[in-house]
Write a protein that binds this DNA or RNA. Structure first.
Length: 435
RNA sequence: GCGGGGGUCGCCUAGCCUGGUAGGGCGUGGGAUUGCUAAUCCCAUGUUCGCAAGAACUCGUGGGUUCGAAUCCCACUCCCCGCGCCA
């Protein structure tokens, strides 16, 4: 969350930010709740002070063996008053906390202002070698336009997936991977992990389920309903990405500033309801309830976070250059930016069968937004004052989505799939699937 | 899963049985004093609200009992030891 003090001190700034994010937000409700919250604190403190004073008096009298029954009677009344104020305070706190936690992060000055995704700016394009792009255009011809096979037809043709049976036992947006697809998926994971180790990351396999308090710090409230699965009768939630456990990993800790930045490479299965995406990408592996992902997560000092952000992007872009998957990098405009993020780059891979770029990576600087809810601070020396760290995250590779990109970009006119050069050593003898 | 032990204001620790302002040590910061490579003493040392004076909170977390809870009761949680189960 953002610093609650800002509600009292600079409402104009918040108002402006909300407008630039094209967000409808009940700011008045929040401002009132904040005012009420502080009034209640003062009132409650006043009554508690009375209580403490009388309590001391009782103690003093008892020691001297004097009668304290009138004061004890008085205390009873104060007790009810405290109870009443506490209840009022609790419901006010709930209202305040709900709204303050939904308030999005302030964004960086380099974020272009804009209304929605149409105002995002392209910062880079990479076209790969396009060796394989040319071949499939010799492929299937349909109404005079040369068409490529989509990943579902390709994978079905080669016996690499079974979507029907997955639907039978689990419903839509699930899949069985089979044969070389399993190997390819693991090859991609292994390659990604080796790549991050080479870049100096600490690789981590986190818990796939975490408690509510840990999840709440990493995630914005509305995401609970739309994306996060809950385990029935347990205080456990399925992670939507390893970003969640990686962020909360250091919750309530004071990190040693000398160890920063800390760079983690998380690998996990990710679980998402996709409740807000009805009808979108219903077929295939592109948008699914369960997928693997290798994620980068950085804790750093505030003064380093923008440098770290560029570094994350550069490392991620290089990964797709090595895989020779065409992509473009865009910077999200203020209206399209995620609530937690102060600045986000998306990398969009080229999906030739859809004849379009689609998001495959998202690279964000969340500044102190997550760190504040999770209380993650640092200091250089044991008795220094503590400062909130900045957190950043970036997809390195979302395995299933990238498998789709590989299938489509590396397909041949024979319906086979060339294995990307960088993955060959992880694929044993297979250098072309279906040959 | 069962049994036992534990979690105290940065770190260590007393207090819990027997309810009445959370005490000491270490570390750190500031100050004082003394002619010795240093010692000794004093003050401060978390969070929140408040312009401030000040006040409230803080003994793993949340409830309960009580005029009053670190202390008594209940639930949860984490750590340690033993047993059980298990890829």
């Amino acid at each position: 969350m953002i610093d609650p003090k800002i509600i009292k001190e600079n409402q104009g700034l918040v108002k402006e930010m909300l407008a630039n994010r094209s967000m409808d937000f009940p700011l008045d409700v929040l401002i009132n709740a904040d005012k009420q919250r502080r009034d209640l604190i003062v009132e409650l403190q006043r009554v508690k002070h009375q209580k403490n004073t009388l309590s001391k008096e009782i103690s003093a009298r008892k020691k001297k063996n004097e009668n304290a029954s009138t004061i004890i009677h008085e205390m009873g009344k104060i007790g009810t008053e405290i109870k009443r104020l506490e209840e009022e305070s609790k419901s006010n706190e709930e209202l305040f906390s709900k709204h303050i936690r939904s308030l999005p992060n302030f964004f960086h000055e380099t974020v272009p202002l804009g209304k929605d995704e149409n105002d995002n700016k392209i910062t880079r394009e990479y076209n790969g070698k396009q060796n394989f792009l040319k071949k499939p255009t010799e492929g299937i011809e349909k109404s005079g336009i040369l068409q490529m096979k989509n990943h579902i037809d390709l994978a079905n043709g080669l016996g690499l997936i079974d979507l029907e049976r997955a639907g039978k036992i689990s419903g839509s947006r699930f899949y069985f991977l089979k044969n070389e697809m399993v190997k390819l998926s693991m090859a991609l994971s292994n390659f990604a992990i080796d790549y991050l180790i080479k870049e100096g990351y600490t690789v981590v396999q986190p818990p796939f389920m975490i408690r509510r308090d840990a999840m709440e710090g990493a995630v914005i409230l509305s995401d609970f309903e739309e994306t996060i699965y809950k385990i029935e009768n347990e205080d456990l939630y399925m992670i939507g990405t390893s970003e969640h456990p990686l962020a909360s990993m250091h919750m309530n800790e004071i990190l040693n500033g000398k160890n920063l930045p800390v760079r983690y490479g998380g690998i996990s299965t990710c679980f998402r309801k996709e409740a807000g995406a009805h009808g979108k990408d219903m077929k295939g592996l592109f948008r699914v309830h369960q997928f693997e992902k290798v994620e980068q997560f950085v804790f750093c000092k505030p003064e380093d976070s923008w440098k770290e952000h560029e570094r994350l992007l550069q490392i991620t872009e290089k990964f797709y250059e090595i895989l020779e998957i065409p992509f473009r990098t865009i910077i999200l405009c203020s209206g399209d930016l995620g609530k937690v993020s102060a600045k986000t780059y998306d990398i969009e891979g080229w999906f030739p069968a859809q004849n379009t770029y689609r998001e495959i990576c998202s690279c964000s600087n969340c500044t102190d937004y997550q760190a504040r809810s999770l209380r993650i601070r640092y200091r250089d020396n044991p008795n220094d004052e503590t400062t909130l760290v900045h957190t950043l995250n970036s997809t390195l590779v979302a395995i299933q989505r990238t498998l789709v990109a590989i299938l489509e970009n590396y397909q041949t006119s024979n319906g086979t799939i060339i294995v990307p050069e960088a993955l060959k050593k992880y694929m044993g003898d297979t250098d072309e699937i279906g040959k």
